[in-house]
Amino acid sequence: MSKRLTLFLNTSPYSFENTYTAMRIAEAALRKGLETHLVASADGVYNFLKGQKGKGLPHAADGFTSLMEKGLKVDL
């Protein structure tokens, strides 16, 4: 059985560095073949809002969309 990693993200995308850390950890875990999940709760769900126009910080929706294409499973 492959190892499973579950990340829990409960902060909004642009006030904290957690979005970036979660994306980097998920990226490396997927690259290493781990079954990788992310559960978003409280303000963490804002990472997945459509139409984010922020600049100068890692783009949450684009980053997570690309990770979901690589196999990240997300529950809100």
Partner: peptide, 19 residues
């Protein structure tokens, strides 16, 4: 450590506490 090494540490640990 980089993220790949962190994943190795996490997989190798009997438990990961945090963040």
């Amino acid at each position: 450590v980089d993220y790949d090494q962190l994943i190795d540490l996490m997989v190798g640990a009997d438990k990961v506490i945090g963040i």
